[in-house]
Design a protein around this nucleic acid. Structure first.
Lengths: 144, 144
DNA sequence: ATTTGTACTTGTAATATGCAAGTGCTATTG
DNA sequence: CAATAGCACTTGCATATTACAAGTACAAAT
C-alpha cells in the first residue's frame, strides 16, 4: 500500500486521497444502508477481495473514520463502527446515491437498493445519522 | 482502458464506476471552482498526467457528463463544458469539500482553496450552479 | 518555412488490483 | 480433548492501471 499521501492542500484532493477509489465509499455504504459491520459481511454484493477490504479498513481506521472493537455478542469477531468523522461522510454517500439514482439508467434505485432519499433528502439523512449515532457510539449492539 | 463496467445495480456502485477514482472528481472541481475548461488548464495543481487526463475526459464525455466543442475564441482549442448531468454532480463535490475542510488537518480551506461553502451550503451551491448553467450551456463564453 | 500552442498518444517502469489459497486464532462439537 | 468450523485476515502471483517522459499531429502565428 504505497500511496501518494498529499497531492495538494485542496480539501477535495485530501478527501479523495482517503476515499477516492472504487471501493472505500461502497464499504461505507454497507455501514450506512445495510448496517454491515463485520469483516465477512462487508465482502458482499460487489464481491470485494479480502485483501483489498483489509487494506481499505486499515486506511479508514488510520484516518479515524472507523473504529474497531471486539464484538461483545461474538467474542471471536470484530465489530467496526463509524466515528463522528465517519458519520459526517454520510451526506456525501447520500448525494452520490441521489446522482446515480437520477442519472444512470438501469440502476436499481427502485429495487433492492430502493431508498426514499430523493423524496426527502434531509429527513432520510437525519434518520440515518441518528440511527448510526445510537448504534455505533456504544459497545452494546442489538443486531444479532 | 479495460474496466469492469458494472459491479452491481446499486446507484452508488454505478456512480463510482464512473467517477470513483483519485482524479475524476478533481477534474470536475477544476470546472466548478476554477472555471478551467481547456485540456492544458485541467492539468494544473495536482499535476495529473496527460494520458490519465485524456482518459478521464473521454470517460466523462462517454457518460454524458461533459461535452466538447471547438472554442469559438481560439479555433485550435477545445472547450469542455458540463452537461446537465454533470452539473448535478456539483452537490457531491461540495459535500466532499465540506468534509475535507471540516475533518482533515492541514487542509487549505482558509487559504488558496477558501470557500464559503460551510457557512451557506445551499446558497453557494445554487450560485455555482447558476453561473455554470449560463456559461456552459451556450457556445458564447466570456473568459478570455 | 519555421516556430508556437494545443491536444493529445505512446512506451515503459512502477504500483495497485483481483483471484485463489493459506494462516492463525477462537469457539464449538463429538 | 482432538477435530471441525467460523472469522479475520495474509500471501503469492497474474493482470490491470497509473506515472513519468517523450513524441506526434495539426492549426495558427511569425
Amino acid at each position: 500500500m504505497k500511496r501518494i499521501e498529499r497531492r495538494s492542500d485542496c480539501p477535495i484532493s485530501l478527501s479523495l486521497d482517503i476515499f477516492g477509489d472504487k471501493w472505500t465509499l461502497l464499504i461505507l455504504r454497507d455501514f450506512i444502508f445495510f448496517d454491515n459491520r463485520h469483516f465477512n459481511e462487508l465482502v458482499t454484493i460487489e464481491k470485494i477481495s479480502t485483501n483489498i477490504l483489509a487494506d481499505r479498513l486499515k486506511r479508514l481506521l488510520n484516518n479515524d473514520i472507523l473504529k474497531k472493537e471486539i464484538d461483545v455478542y461474538n467474542k471471536s469477531s470484530y465489530l467496526y463502527s463509524l466515528t463522528e468523522k465517519g458519520i459526517e461522510i454520510i451526506p456525501i454517500v447520500i448525494e452520490i446515491y441521489k446522482w446515480g439514482a437520477n442519472n444512470i439508467e438501469g440502476n436499481n434505485a427502485n429495487g433492492k437498493f430502493k431508498s426514499e432519499v430523493n423524496s426527502n433528502f434531509s429527513k432520510v439523512t437525519a434518520e440515518i445519522v441518528d440511527r448510526i449515532k445510537t448504534t455505533h457510539n456504544t459497545v452494546s449492539y442489538e443486531k444479532h
